[in-house]
């Protein structure tokens, strides 16, 4: 159980992740705003509570791994890593500029602290399974965390990986589905409805949780239980809002990748800063 103070701290961190992401993408003038905003609480819980990491030693062999298969959430991951101390916050402003260490999509060979290169949807699921399997072969206790987009699970490869992980009882693998109900072209229910997401994972032998993806306490509870579960992998379906808490993106239909004006940034930053004050 998280204390009230810890809960507030994680909420603050989630808001700061949003704030830094909006600033970085706003500085650039465009970016994947929708799907970065929806994973902020998850990243706060993972990097400040759930995962064993050492920012001063990113390749620490005893660390837990994060595979952000929805690679376009990279900017949110970078913001979390910067806030966690992997590199200075100012570096985030180089996103997508020539020679940057911070590309649109996650790249383990470029960014300190990024464990896997992703971007072509679905592939991170198999990569995470491979890492989990490698750790199992060596009897290592490290966990592997996998973040999937909701549109992403329309990819067949995801279900190949899920079937394999369920059968092989990879209990060191904990997946999240960022179920923000939207994909690039619109609402998932209008394009290819996902149906019962938790039920589908359960059918493949996974332990499944269905939680409010913007409640750090709910995410923390599910992850804690998942970590204690032996013999099968777990998934946490995060019911989220695409573009959450970003005034120019939340509630908009086309908010996957947007052009961001200076006025947009100012409005969003001001809202998020106000929220931060409320939480302090």
């Amino acid at each position: 159980m998280l204390t009230e103070e810890k809960t507030r701290e994680l909420r603050r961190l989630a808001t700061r992740i949003r704030l830094e992401t909006v600033k970085a993408l706003g500085h650039l003038g465009f970016g994947h705003i929708g799907g970065t905003m929806s994973v902020a609480e998850l990243l706060a819980v993972l990097y400040w509570e759930a995962m064993k990491v050492r920012p001063e030693d990113p390749q620490w062999p005893e660390r837990d791994w994060l595979v952000c298969s929805k690679g376009h959430a990279g900017p949110a991951v970078y913001a979390a890593l910067a806030l966690r101390g992997y590199f200075p916050l100012t570096e985030l402003l180089t996103i997508n500029t020539p020679g940057t260490r911070f590309p649109s999509h996650c790249d383990r060979n470029l960014t300190i602290g990024v464990d896997m290169t992703t971007g072509s949807l679905g592939q991170g699921s198999s990569l995470a399974v491979g890492v989990a399997l490698g750790l199992k072969i060596d009897d290592k206790p490290n966990n592997v965390y996998l973040i999937l987009g909701d549109g992403e699970i329309q990819e067949g490869q995801v279900w190949e990986a899920i079937m394999f992980a369920g059968y092989r009882r990879l209990d060191n693998l904990i997946a999240f589905v960022d179920y923000n109900k939207q994909q690039l072209d619109g609402y998932t229910k209008d394009i290819l409805d996902l149906g019962d997401v938790a039920g589908k994972f359960a059918a493949f032998g996974w332990q499944a949780f269905d939680v409010d993806g913007h409640s750090v306490a709910a995410i923390h509870r599910a992850v804690t239980e998942a970590k204690q579960t032996a013999g099968r992998p777990s998934v946490v379906v995060l019911n989220t809002v695409k573009g959450k808490d970003c005034v120019f993106a939340e509630g908009k239909k086309a908010n996957h990748h947007v052009v961001i004006s200076r006025e947009d940034v100012e409005a969003a930053v001001s809202c998020l800063e106000k929220k931060l004050e409320e939480l302090s």
């Binding site: 464990d115 592939q123 198999s126 491979g130 490698g134 490869q157 190949e160 079937m163 394999f164």
Partner: peptide, 17 residues
């Protein structure tokens, strides 16, 4: 599962296999 196998191979290699 050829696609999954290639991803698993890559993931394994990142752990030193």
């Amino acid at each position: 599962q050829e696609a999954n196998m290639m991803g698993i191979a890559a993931g394994l290699s990142v752990t030193g296999k």
